[in-house]
Amino acid sequence: MVQHDTAPEVAEQLSEFLKRRREQIAHRWADAALFSNVFTVSRDEAVEAGRAVAEALADVARSGRLEDIEAPGFDTVRDQLGRMTSARTQSGYTPTQIAREVAGLRAPVAALLRAEFDDPADERMHACLLELTVLMGTLRLVVLETTINAGEELIARQRQQLLEVATPVIELWEGVVAVPLIGTLDSSRSQVVMESLLEAIVERRARYAILDITGVPTVDSLVAQHLMKTVAAARLMGAECIVSGIRPAIAQTIVHLGIDLGSILTRAGLADALAYALTQQGIAVSARPTAGADSR
């Protein structure tokens, strides 16, 4: 990146201008898209937000670090900008559109700055305008940074929600809960499965918990270990965990891990697991009615 040299007296002059005219700047910004679309309820709020940003820019200009997005002056408005950009993101704006709105904040300030000078050819004016452009460019980067951070946070939250949605715990019978797992199990998902199944045991006062992995094609050793830990944790809580639908490949992984399958209750399918749980509770499960056999 080409380092741009700022004459200290120009930066000082720009800072002084931003501070002195912050009210006018704030009022003009309040009508700009970025502020007016975020603070829809009260224009006073928009003006107040604009004033804070103008003051922050004045601080950054005074410090001389006009190109530095880490300049301390920005810290005071980072939260505020974050709230504004996340409001824009939530109404469907892309980072590019937000950046364009930030770019739109320069023109009204530049107009005010030009009005400060009587002579339109004044070199000091051009120097100040150049510095203002640099400063507004840095502000745009700061806003982009907060937008991206907010986006990452949103993705993390959605990933968590997706995990929870993808692992429904259902009550099959009074005292019998089950998680039918479908698709690839990774470490973080099996962690969520473990926690939701154990929570369900407490909530439903379930004596039996069925972990059905018929829909899981394969597991790695870490996930297999998670499954075994779930069984052990359920037992500590006073519930019995039944693993149903273990595919041959998964059985092999478990054997390779050296886990004693004798300590784990397994059944071929979800139905067999449920039948076991019901029988254990003294509920008679009778064989299939013979009607099906007659039709052959």
Binding site: M194, E195, L198, E199, I201, V202, R205, A206, R207, K229, A232, A233, A234, R235, L236, M237, G238, A239
Partner: peptide
């Protein structure tokens, strides 16, 4: 009989390597 162990405690004990085999447990 150990009764009413919380899920977070059970997960932690298992992770710690303490599965307390031979100890009877109950939900409450």
């Amino acid at each position: 009989i150990l009764a009413g162990m919380r899920p977070a405690v059970a997960i932690t004990l298992v992770e710690l390597g303490l599965t307390l085999p031979g100890l009877a447990t109950a939900l409450d």
